[in-house]
């Protein structure tokens, strides 16, 4: 079994080769920088992200506004920096929820087997069959705007990715002789699965979750582009692309292109990092 092939990637991004270490280092560095910037954003942002200066609306890059100004006269750089917080926090929620719940489901299904496995596997396949975005749109339209509802919906939608992977890893892991050795020693199944099986499969699951982070970011950006999810005034990359639409029509594309670029680069970076981690785990297993 090669662990790397178990990781699920979407067709468009699966073509990125990750065996080049310089690419991995650049991506890891980018992710680290991004997280750092998001954390310190309110202190380093040159302007209030919501301060409206209609006089300089759609202005190009200048000393006061290094990345230009959008159609409503708000500083693009400040919105990008502060928006990184929302744009990263949402996917983080999705990933944490889907990882914790997915590992629990996958571990229970893989370890216990039998009817519980059938029930949980069929259940998660049902979720797989239902498009995550639609589920999120449905929930947002019922509960109104706010980040919690779409994050939960996407968390549920991403759960099968993790639970399937966990289940197949657990199935392979529990056949290994050390598990039997612990059984003979008198350890309970719960103890063995939590203390030994889980830590042994964790690296691969975390690699999948890292890749999922990128996908969740696209999905959430897509939702806020549609005007769902993030409340109107909150700076958010997806929302910025939506706001920038009118600017593109007026011939000033910068305020829309920059957040697009931020989204694409972040997603690619998370993909490369996650895939590389999975590769490293697979290599160590051999």
């Amino acid at each position: 079994m090669t662990t790397a092939t178990l990781i699920r990637r979407r067709p468009g991004l699966a073509g990125i080769r990750t065996d080049r270490s310089w690419l991995f280092r650049i991506c890891l560095g980018f992710v680290a920088l991004l997280v750092l910037l998001a954390i310190v954003a309110p202190w380093i942002a040159p302007h209030d992200p919501n301060a409206v200066d209609l006089g300089s609306a759609l202005a190009g890059p200048s000393g006061a506004h290094p990345a230009g100004v959008d159609a409503s006269g708000r500083d693009t750089l400040s919105r990008l920096l502060v928006g990184a917080r929302t744009s990263l926090l949402g996917p983080l929620g999705v990933v944490v929820f889907s990882t914790v719940a997915g590992v629990a489901v996958g571990l229970a299904a893989g370890w216990r087997g039998g009817w519980l496995d059938s029930l949980l596997s069929r259940g998660t396949e049902l979720v797989f069959a239902f498009p995550g975005m639609l589920l999120a749109i449905l929930i947002v339209s019922v509960y109104g705007p706010g980040l919690t509802a779409p994050v939960l919906a996407l968390g549920v939608a991403y759960l099968p990715y993790v639970s399937r992977l966990t289940r197949s890893l657990v199935l392979a892991e529990r056949e290994r002789p050390y598990v039997e050795a612990y059984r003979v020693q008198g350890h309970s199944g719960l103890q063995i699965s939590l203390r030994h099986v889980l830590p042994n499969i964790a690296p691969v699951v975390l690699a999948q979750s890292t890749i999922n982070f990128g996908y969740a970011l696209i999905d959430l950006a897509g939702l806020s582009f549609l005007g769902l999810g993030v409340p109107p005034l909150t700076p958010d990359w997806g929302r910025m692309v939506f706001d920038g639409e009118s600017a593109i029509q007026s011939g000033y594309p910068l305020s829309a292109i920059l957040p697009c670029l931020a989204i694409v680069m972040t997603v690619v970076a998370f993909n490369v990092v996650g895939e590389r981690w999975a590769d490293q785990v697979a290599r160590r297993d051999r």
Binding site: P177, Y178, A181, V184, Q185, G186, S188, H196, N200
Partner: peptide, 27 residues
């Protein structure tokens, strides 16, 4: 049950064929 499991373990223990596979690689 736990008591029976522990009692059994204290009667019989086993050493497996392949010592690399019978030890948790992370412990």
């Amino acid at each position: 049950g736990r008591a029976a499991r522990l009692a059994r373990a204290r009667e019989v223990q086993m050493v497996f064929q392949d010592p690399f596979l019978s030890l948790d690689p992370r412990t």
